[in-house]
Design a protein around this nucleic acid. Sequence first.
DNA 1: TGTTTGATGTCAGTCGCTGTCATCAGCGTA
DNA 2: TACGCTGATGACAGCGACTGACATCAAACA
Lengths: 188, 188
Amino acid sequence: MARWEPDARGRLEQAALALYGERGFEQTTVAEIAARAGLTERTFFRHYADKREVLFAGAGSLQDLLVNTLADASDAAAPIDAVASALEAAGVLLQERGDFARQRQAVIAANTELRERELIKMASLATALAGTLRRRGVKEPAASLTAEAGIAVFRVAFESWVVEPTQRDLPQLIRDSMNELKAVTAGT
Amino acid sequence: MARWEPDARGRLEQAALALYGERGFEQTTVAEIAARAGLTERTFFRHYADKREVLFAGAGSLQDLLVNTLADASDAAAPIDAVASALEAAGVLLQERGDFARQRQAVIAANTELRERELIKMASLATALAGTLRRRGVKEPAASLTAEAGIAVFRVAFESWVVEPTQRDLPQLIRDSMNELKAVTAGT
DNA sequence: TGTTTGATGTCAGTCGCTGTCATCAGCGTA
DNA sequence: TACGCTGATGACAGCGACTGACATCAAACA
């Protein structure tokens, strides 16, 4: 017989997403999240650094997927296209968790502090992509610019995917956005 | 005879920048900032929404300059080049306040919470630029992509300008970064 | 001269977050 | 079997960020 119910982290994440969605992020206390998960406030902070981080538990695996896909991309591909393929792989992952991703994004969009946290996670993705590009031989500032541009493409595509009523294909939206960026940066 | 010393906001900003630089952001309390400015903690929060915001008082005027410059750009210029000229104008402004900008940036770079705040300010700039582009007739998602790409260029250029020991010209760095982005997104 | 205004002070209170110590089922080991 | 160790959790005190409510009082105004 286990001493505690298993998967404390999962229960905390579920409780937090539900409460943030019902009452809003600011109107929810950490004590309430912990109580719904059958735990105490102190235990919440043993699992998550702060009240926001509980919504971003999956960021690490997304970053791993991005970096690994980019690292495995063909050397023949131009850096921007290698980044594009990595972004599409991330798009596939997010689309598989479609309902969860949309609910989570609605909560984040409703609160400025959560948007801040999301932005720094995106910046972390860009930094990781830039490092991988450098390991592939891309020099600075090309590596950082390619990575930042890629993340910008991803952000715009994800934004429209979340909002759209008709569930368009996220990887396709990413490809479209990338083509749009190329068109927009092409000289007149 | 004035009832209070004038320029409470300016004194708070100076005190905050100095203390954040000396002890670090986390090790500084709002009460200490207020005391150095000859005020109370409560008054600090009447001028700034939170402990971070005191470092971003100039963000509004920077955004105004960006938007106005973009709005006044020649209709003949491609959107990305109109954005580039606005970014260069912002670069001139920052370069004029060179020492202050560098000291401020060192403080921000040293703390994650401050980097989060800076990222959302940059995102706000991108949103404002995208709106101005739309008013100039650019459609979505081209407007958002152009704005986001422009901010990415600005971020990379500003980063290297801050770090560089030799004080290269910031507007020139922005032009170089923009050209690098165009090269990087050009098809193979 | 009386009134209003606006920036500030004072104080109490909530909540995010941390340090510290106690608890106790399960595990390995003698 | 008995014993000690481990690791996840609970309990509690405390700090600092931030807020609401009320008081103050010089300056501007009627």
